[in-house]
């Protein structure tokens, strides 16, 4: 089980959260200008990283706010938690 540090509510059990998949996928500004391949890449292709992976979580059983998490997808260890719109923090010194 994961213990996830909600930026607003503090550390809570994983059951209170829902995972929203890969973070930092930006909807193209002008979809009509894209080729089919570029649109498919936005819609379907995913990094599916083995290792440090930036993903969205929602505290759906709590404050219901979204935030981002960098998590190791092998050990499942949460490496950092940060606000939506921010860049992932650099590695801890």
């Amino acid at each position: 089980m994961l213990q996830i540090e909600c930026p607003w509510c503090g550390p809570r059990d994983q059951d209170e959260f829902q995972c929203g998949g890969e973070a930092h996928i930006v909807r193209p500004a002008a979809p009509e200008a894209l080729s089919d391949a570029e649109w498919a890449d936005y819609l379907f292709n995913r990094a599916n990283t083995k290792g440090a992976h930036a993903e969205q979580w929602c505290h759906s059983g709590g404050c219901r706010r979204w935030f981002n998490v960098v998590r190791d997808t092998v050990s499942y260890k949460i490496l950092s938690v940060y606000h939506v719109g921010d860049s992932p923090p650099q590695e801890n010194p």
């Binding site: 089980m1 829902q18 995972c19 990283t49 083995k50 992976h53 993903e55 997808t73 092998v74 499942y76």
Partner: peptide, 14 residues
């Protein structure tokens, strides 16, 4: 399945 990506060959107890 768990909703999150996982390569760890284990999932959540819930």
């Amino acid at each position: 399945i768990d909703a999150y990506i996982g390569y760890g060959q284990r999932g959540s107890f819930s």
